[in-house]
């Protein structure tokens, strides 16, 4: 931790810390190398999952997300996070409560019961956008931080849904063919590859993974077909939930559909960790369902 680093309250969510802890570990280390300190947001909970909670009672979703935001307000820090689902809950509820009196009053009525109040004093950022923003980190600084370029690897990007969409409630511009995460990938020395229907959903969201797994996996499988067409060595994303769907989903696809893909799936922070010299063990890549070894062989 350096005195000049920017400080953010680090919202962990569920899947990164509880299923892919390498993402959490690498996010903290790689960000520190880039001048960002991620400080623990003590007592945070599930964001809560927009599909699961928002789908059945939006009021609970607003109030629970607001509680997480207030924890950061009390620290006096903006939130950063590493999951698109969390981004939807935390970013969107923060914006909605800031701009709609009825929603803010409703949430604050409940928060008052636990001596909390949403004030609307902080902003919420996805860590990837902080990396891309030249005022915070920027492509150049990322490239400079690379000690082990991922040369020779063809990496496809899955943006996920809740980071960019709906575009009118976000600030990322083109939601149909964005290229900024490809730029982040290229900064690591890898070759970003384009494939058909890049913006298609992983299939897991909205509670569909739990409601109808075969349906969710069929969507996932379509992405796998499009990725194979262009010969991607790995898929990267900025959402542990998408990662879960693509990584464990491949095992489930094999079980259910009898199709084997074997495509390694890595969170951008895991890639960044590798490129900054972290070892596969330091990233707990052995927890991935799909063997990451073939990809590692290409780059190490």
């Amino acid at each position: 931790m350096s005195g000049n680093n920017r400080q953010y309250a680090f919202f962990l969510g569920c899947i990164a810390p509880n299923r892919y802890p390498g993402i959490e570990a690498s996010a903290i280390r790689t960000s520190a190398n880039l001048g960002i300190d991620l400080l623990p947001l003590k007592g945070a909970s599930c964001c809560p999952a927009p599909g699961a909670f928002g789908a059945i009672d939006l009021n609970v979703w607003y109030a629970m997300a607001a509680r997480n935001i207030v924890l950061a307000e009390q620290m006096g820090m903006d939130i950063t996070l590493i999951c698109n689902g969390c981004y939807k809950s935390i970013y969107e509820v923060n914006e909605k409560l800031k701009h709609n009196d009825d929603l803010r009053d409703g949430a604050n009525e409940v928060l008052a019961e636990i001596d909390m109040e949403f004030k609307g004093t902080i902003d919420v950022w996805h860590l990837a956008e902080l990396y891309y923003d030249p005022k915070i980190v920027g492509i150049d600084k990322i490239a400079e931080s690379v000690t082990r370029p991922l040369t020779g690897a063809k990496i496809a990007v899955h943006y996920g849904c809740h980071l960019l969409k709906p575009g009118k409630e976000r600030h990322f511009g083109d939601t149909e063919n964005p290229m900024w995460i490809e730029e982040l990938v290229a900064a690591l020395g890898a070759e970003p590859v384009q494939y058909r229907n890049k913006m298609q959903c992983c299939g897991a969201g909205g509670g569909v993974r739990g409601y109808d797994l075969a349906h969710a996996l069929d969507i996932t499988n379509e992405k796998m077909i499009n990725l194979q067409e262009v010969g991607a060595d790995a898929l990267t994303e900025v959402c542990p939930f998408c990662q879960l769907q693509y990584d464990r989903g491949q095992v489930e696809i094999e079980e259910k559909f009898g199709i084997e893909w074997g495509l390694p799936v890595l969170h951008y922070n895991e890639l960044l960790g590798l490129a900054q010299g972290m070892s596969p063990d330091e990233l707990a890549l052995d927890l991935h369902a799909v063997d990451v070894e073939p990809f590692l062989k290409k780059i190490l």
């Binding site: 149909e176 384009q194 494939y195 058909r196 229907n197 067409e229 262009v230």
Partner: peptide
């Protein structure tokens, strides 16, 4: 709703 391009044939979906 949208159009996607086959990267090889440049046909459109």
């Amino acid at each position: 709703a949208n159009i996607t391009e086959d990267p090889v044939t440049k046909n459109l979906h």
